[in-house]
């Protein structure tokens, strides 16, 4: 047991020490390619020059991660189906990534029944992802029912914001 402890402390220490020493440069999405049009000419060394090549964008940055639902419904709206499809493509291309689908309900009615409604919404998104080739092991679902509202009020528009599935990326 003490070996594990020492190991854990060592790993933690390495992580803490490693963090500030190895800054990760931000990729620049707007200017991704070095065009070589500078007036000064330089000699490059292939495979060493960090200025060349194409930066890789965060594959998930642009995609929305919240899908909203109608009252008493777990059907993904037509307008959101492209969003789910885009996530499916990303997950298929990056089979090492996985997502947690967090289902939510509005506050009306019974709490545990609302857990069921939230789960049903998360499952609707899961099914849609799996139909498009995402493997089951890449997807986890959890329902928070009405326990974690996004909007705190009790108006129809608050309820509409709370009936949702949030897509969260896990490692």
């Amino acid at each position: 047991m003490s070996y594990y402890k020492i190991f854990a402390v060592a790993v933690l220490g390495a992580l803490l020490a490693g963090c500030p020493a190895t800054p990760v440069p931000d990729p620049e999405p707007t200017d991704t390619t070095y065009d070589g049009s500078d007036s000064a000419s330089t000699d490059g060394m292939d495979g060493f020059d960090g200025q060349g090549g194409t930066a890789i964008e965060d594959p998930f940055e642009q995609l929305g991660t919240v899908i909203y639902f109608d009252f008493d419904s777990s059907e993904v709206r037509a307008a959101d189906q492209d969003l789910v499809a885009a996530h499916a493509i990303q997950l298929n291309e990056n089979s090492y990534t996985s997502v947690r689908l967090e289902g939510h309900a509005d506050e009306r009615g019974s709490r545990e029944y609302n857990i069921g409604l939230g789960e049903r919404r998360a499952q609707a998104v899961r099914q849609m992802l799996m139909i498009q080739g995402v493997t089951a092991s890449q997807i986890q679902t959890v329902s928070f029912g009405e326990e974690r509202p996004d909007a705190m009020g009790s108006s129809e528009s608050d309820y509409a914001r709370n009936r949702r599935v949030e897509i969260r990326f896990t490692d």
Binding site: E112, I115, G116, E119, R120, A122, Q123, R126, A136, T141, S143
Partner: peptide
């Protein structure tokens, strides 16, 4: 208890 399983059927 209520169990939902991976397929989410409570």
């Amino acid at each position: 208890v209520t169990l939902g399983g991976v397929e989410g059927n409570p």
